[in-house]
Computed example of a mutant assay.
Amino acid sequence: MDKPTRVLIYEDNADLRASLSQLLGGSPGLELAGALSNCTQAEADIARLQPDVVLMDIDMPGITGIEGLRRIKATTPGVNVVMLTVFDENDRVFDAICAGADGYLLKKTPPAKLLEAIGEVRAGGAPMTPAIARQVLKLFPRVPPRAVPDESPANLSAREQEILGLLVEGYSYKMIAADRGISLDTVRSHIKKIYEKLHVRSMTEAVSKALRQGLT
């Protein structure tokens, strides 16, 4: 039997923290590792609670979620961190992605979508709500590959370019499968090849590189 995915919540709003705790605690395949109001002891929290996924509020007193994200990624890069925010139009989206966020969701994301996002990030994806994905498109200037001399062309196939373009637009794996009429396993196979060709390890890295090199 597969081990449940352990999820740690950082959220300073007590009501939302309780709501998220109840949702995660009652969901099959998930286990609530902890629910904390701040990330001032992020490194120690991770070592003690051993989460697989962290849901990180971006605005907290003391230490911001972005600083907490940086600390977690510096010590335990294998832990997936999904940022939660009420905002979708500010440069903190850019800061969080540059700091290594594995996903970026609005707090108003429906519960079913939030649970799907946790599964997606564990499968190697980087869930983003469409509004966030649109902001990402604006944050990274499109430049031709020749303007980035230290990076060689990716030599993506036409299908791989299509799928990368959908990732950039914020599509989930399931949405890509439905849009292109292919199976989830086929989507995962294409994305694995995209990662290999782009020499990246996450969807945020792939999106960043695609936008910088004008690959989509």
Results as ranks from 00 to 15, higher is better:
residue 13 N to P: 04
residue 197 K to C: 05
residue 50 Q to F: 08
residue 210 A to G: 10
residue 207 V to E: 03
residue 129 T to S: 11
residue 163 I to E: 00
residue 70 R to F: 08
residue 157 S to T: 15
residue 178 A to I: 01
residue 134 R to D: 10
residue 37 S to L: 08
residue 8 L to I: 08
residue 156 L to D: 03
residue 102 D to R: 00
residue 131 A to L: 11
residue 122 R to G: 00
residue 121 V to S: 01
residue 74 A to M: 12
residue 141 P to H: 13
residue 117 A to Q: 07
residue 6 R to Q: 05
residue 4 P to C: 06
residue 43 E to W: 06
residue 181 G to D: 14
residue 145 P to V: 09
residue 7 V to T: 03
residue 186 T to L: 10
residue 135 Q to E: 13
residue 78 G to V: 05
residue 92 R to K: 13
residue 41 Q to R: 14
residue 70 R to K: 15
residue 187 V to Q: 00
residue 57 D to V: 11
residue 166 L to T: 00
residue 45 D to C: 08
residue 54 V to D: 02
residue 94 F to M: 14
residue 108 K to H: 11
residue 168 V to E: 03
residue 56 M to A: 08
residue 207 V to N: 02
residue 54 V to L: 07
residue 100 G to C: 02
residue 50 Q to C: 11
residue 178 A to W: 01
residue 214 G to F: 12
residue 163 I to Q: 00
residue 111 P to L: 11
residue 118 I to Q: 00
residue 94 F to K: 14
residue 157 S to Y: 06
residue 152 S to W: 09
residue 33 A to W: 05
residue 126 A to I: 01
residue 206 A to Y: 02
residue 120 E to S: 03
residue 86 V to C: 12
residue 2 D to R: 13
residue 205 E to P: 11
residue 86 V to L: 12
residue 44 A to T: 11
residue 74 A to L: 13
residue 127 P to K: 02
residue 165 G to C: 03
residue 82 V to R: 00
residue 121 V to F: 00
residue 36 L to P: 01
residue 6 R to F: 02
residue 18 A to R: 14
residue 43 E to S: 12
residue 167 L to E: 02
residue 76 T to R: 15
residue 12 D to G: 06
residue 38 N to P: 09
residue 116 E to H: 05
residue 143 V to Y: 12
residue 81 V to S: 00
residue 117 A to S: 15
residue 130 P to E: 06
residue 165 G to Y: 01
residue 128 M to P: 04
residue 32 L to I: 02
residue 67 E to Y: 07
residue 156 L to C: 08
residue 127 P to A: 04
residue 182 I to S: 00
residue 15 D to K: 05
residue 212 R to G: 04
residue 201 R to P: 04
residue 100 G to I: 01
residue 72 I to G: 03
residue 132 I to F: 10
residue 95 D to H: 07
residue 129 T to L: 03
residue 2 D to M: 13
residue 151 E to R: 13
residue 132 I to W: 07
residue 74 A to V: 10
residue 29 G to D: 03
residue 199 H to C: 12
residue 18 A to Y: 09
residue 20 L to D: 08
residue 28 P to V: 05
residue 64 T to H: 09
residue 162 E to Q: 15
residue 150 D to H: 14
residue 57 D to I: 10
residue 152 S to K: 15
residue 142 R to L: 10
residue 87 F to H: 15
residue 140 F to Q: 02
residue 115 L to G: 04
residue 207 V to G: 01
residue 51 P to M: 06
residue 62 G to R: 11
residue 139 L to K: 05
residue 178 A to V: 03
residue 57 D to S: 13
residue 155 N to D: 14
residue 168 V to W: 01
residue 171 Y to H: 15
residue 1 M to E: 12
residue 29 G to S: 06
residue 169 E to P: 02
residue 53 V to H: 06
residue 96 A to L: 10
residue 18 A to S: 14
residue 213 Q to K: 13
residue 210 A to W: 00
residue 141 P to C: 12
residue 164 L to A: 01
residue 106 L to G: 10
residue 179 D to V: 07
residue 169 E to V: 02
residue 214 G to L: 13
residue 179 D to F: 09
residue 204 T to L: 05
residue 18 A to Q: 15
residue 26 G to M: 06
residue 47 A to K: 14
residue 35 A to V: 03
residue 65 G to S: 07
residue 21 S to V: 08
residue 15 D to L: 09
residue 201 R to C: 12
residue 83 M to Y: 04
residue 195 Y to W: 13
residue 85 T to K: 05
residue 47 A to S: 14
residue 41 Q to L: 13
residue 75 T to G: 08
residue 120 E to V: 00
residue 185 D to H: 10
residue 6 R to I: 02
residue 11 E to G: 05
residue 184 L to W: 09
